[in-house]
Write a protein that binds this DNA or RNA. Structure first.
Lengths: 145, 145
DNA sequence: GATATTTTGATTGTACACAATCTTTTAGAG
DNA sequence: CTCTAAAAGATTGTGTACAATCAAAATATC
């Protein structure tokens, strides 16, 4: 009687589903705030990296965000068209495409700085639980990669 | 000096990012096993609902999975073409489209039953931590919706 | 130094995800 | 009964995600 196996197959008994659903719902919470900046969620996390690191290659960006060039190439072209980043080939190694932030991109940071607190306010989880969740997620992420 | 705000804007200080990255990486872990069944991850969670509930409307499916008709309609047509589900309008209320599982869909469950254990084995997180993560994710999901 | 291999992005094709809009059907107000 | 409003899916358009493939450039090997 493989009842145990069938029970494990239930949606409610799987860790993957709340993870998948939470990620989507959190991104949905960001949307109204990011709309004001004219960014999608993925564009927002790319800009977060740019605000920290100023200039880096597509490869490095992909490593930081767990994204590949198939996702990043068109997305970076959109951010370039918006005027927030610049794309140029490295002179030392022309295989590398260097992504750098523009003054307009730096300015955007002034508006974006309010986003985390605004989203945090409408989630309402205790500091302790949020910290615990944070640690467990990074632990899992480490096991996965 | 708004340094606090800037720190909160760092990728590493946001809960959303490990959530987003974990969800993607977990789905990636499922891929080799789901490929054998000929299902994508989203198709898999739809089938998980079908194995539990046999017949329900698109609306109910969307509520269970946090998905809308724009995602479900084409996906359900693909599952119908594969022969795992049937789609028909309700006689009581022709606005409702009833999704039901076929014998082939039921058979697929026999193979799918091994998937959770296989994925769980390559993640290697303690039973206790997994349980804690599970509870925190559902708690967050509750706050979000 | 010529050739094979590796690295880096770009491109192509498939599959979500969701906002906005449209159509059909039902339910409600008068 | 009639007209209006609401509900359920379907459709359309934009934006990821990612596997697979391609092309250019750099490195390694001989």
């Amino acid at each position: 009687m493989p009842e145990d196996g069938y029970n494990r197959l239930k949606l409610e008994n799987q860790l993957c589903f709340p993870l998948y659903a939470c990620a989507k719902e959190v991104i949905r919470k960001y949307k109204p705030y990011l709309d004001k900046l004219g960014l999608t969620y993925t564009q927002y996390i790319v800009m977060m990296v740019m605000w920290e690191r100023k200039g880096l290659t597509v490869k490095e960006l992909g490593t930081a965000l767990y994204l590949d060039s198939g996702t990043l190439t068109p997305l970076l072209k959109k951010l370039e068209k918006k005027g927030y980043i610049a794309r140029r080939r490295s002179k030392e190694d022309e295989r590398n495409l260097i992504v750098s932030i523009t003054p307009a991109g730096e300015e955007l940071k002034e508006q974006a700085v309010q986003v985390p607190a605004a989203v945090g306010a409408c989630v309402d989880m205790s500091q302790e639980e949020a910290g615990q969740l944070y640690r467990l997620l990074y632990k899992l992420l480490g096991k996965l990669t």
